[in-house]
Computed example of a mutant assay.
Amino acid sequence: MTVPKLGRLGFGAAGLGNLYKAMNDDVAAATIAAGWDAGLRYFDTAPHYGLGLSERRVGAFLTTKPRDEFVISTKVGRILEPADNPTGARDAQGFDVPADVVRRWDPSEAGIRRSIEDSLERTGLDRIDIAYLHDPDVYDLEAGINEALPALEKLRAEGLITAIGVGANSADALRDCVLAADLDVIMLAGRYSLLEQPAAADLMPLCLERGVGIVNVGVYNSGLLARPVVPDAANYNYAPAPADILARARALAACCDEFDVELPAAALQFAAAHASVVSVVVGASNPGQIAQTAARMAARIPAELWAALVSRGLLAADLVNV
């Protein structure tokens, strides 16, 4: 595994692409600066996030820092191309930005190379440390494996990028990619959290066996675990949470409260504790959220909490190694 040291906590920059709501440039700059001040040195972005806006904002900040003091990852697979937008339509994929460019899936070697070149131009940086194939299961997993992954291996061999990986919400898709290519790292979204751990069955042991690091993201399951008290209605994996999921989240929160631990702190630290996890990446929409996240990652959590979660059937005993 050739992944640079990422740190236990990383900065996820989807919010800097105006995810769900607009963020002005000053708040974006202050938020990423707060991450740096909190000691974060790993920053993850993608062309998909705000149709390039996130990459531009991340780059505007990181170009002011010594290049060897941080790690940046971005994604490939989606090419951004100019679009005719005479009516001023907004992006339809969750980002509050003008739809002045369109995303086009291109897993070819030429497409991967172009994506990296475009990301370098948007960020203003001289190199990308980690390149992930982004959501191949959403488009064409077979083409992603057969075209994009060999292209990434070639770019790594040429020294154009340091490490390669795949980012996806599907543990099964990530397993297929780990088996098919010589990956350094994967970005696992929402499949190993305090709420549920489907990736623990075979993907995470496979990564340990092959020396593939896991960057764990989506550890709040779309916000369900992001508050000490679970609200009456909350999202779960980008959709309204069903009743049984809400009940499980409330049981987790109640158990945490008995030990004076906030649910988000337990969720963060659990997500970071598996031996295969090299970093947990969390987003933020303002500087205060960064400080709060850093404090939660550093909070003391008594071993008795994990034992209680196991005894109540909320957590498998073999996953408690925090």
Rank of each mutant, 00 (worst) to 15 (best):
G17K: 05
N18D: 01
N18L: 02
N18Y: 02
N18H: 11
L19P: 03
Y20F: 12
Y20H: 11
A22S: 15
A22V: 14
M23I: 12
M23V: 07
N24Q: 08
D26T: 15
D26E: 15
V27P: 05
A29M: 13
A29E: 15
A30L: 14
A30N: 14
T31H: 11
T31A: 06
I32H: 06
I32W: 08
A34T: 11
G35F: 02
G35C: 11
G35R: 07
W36D: 02
W36P: 01
W36A: 02
D37P: 05
D37F: 11
D37K: 15
A38C: 14
A38F: 03
A38S: 14
L40C: 04
R41F: 03
R41T: 15
Y42A: 01
Y42L: 09
Y42K: 05
F43T: 06
F43S: 06
D44C: 13
T45S: 13
A46G: 03
P47I: 06
H48I: 12
H48F: 15
H48P: 08
Y49E: 07
G52N: 00
S54C: 11
S54G: 08
E55F: 07
E55A: 09
E55N: 08
R56Y: 07
R57F: 09
R57G: 06
G59V: 10
A60D: 11
A60H: 03
L62I: 04
T64D: 01
K65S: 01
K65W: 13
K65Q: 15
R67N: 09
R67K: 10
R67I: 13
R67P: 10
R67W: 08
D68P: 05
F70N: 00
F70M: 03
F70V: 01
F70H: 06
V71F: 07
I72D: 05
T74R: 06
K75S: 00
G77K: 04
R78Y: 14
R78T: 13
R78D: 13
L80A: 03
E81Y: 05
E81P: 03
P82G: 12
P82A: 08
P82T: 09
P82D: 07
A83N: 12
A83F: 08
D84W: 07
D84S: 10
P86K: 07
P86T: 03
P86S: 04
G88F: 03
G88N: 03
G88A: 00
A89M: 04
A89L: 08
R90T: 14
D91T: 06
D91K: 01
A92Y: 07
Q93I: 13
G94F: 05
G94K: 10
F95K: 01
F95H: 11
D96A: 13
D96R: 08
D96P: 10
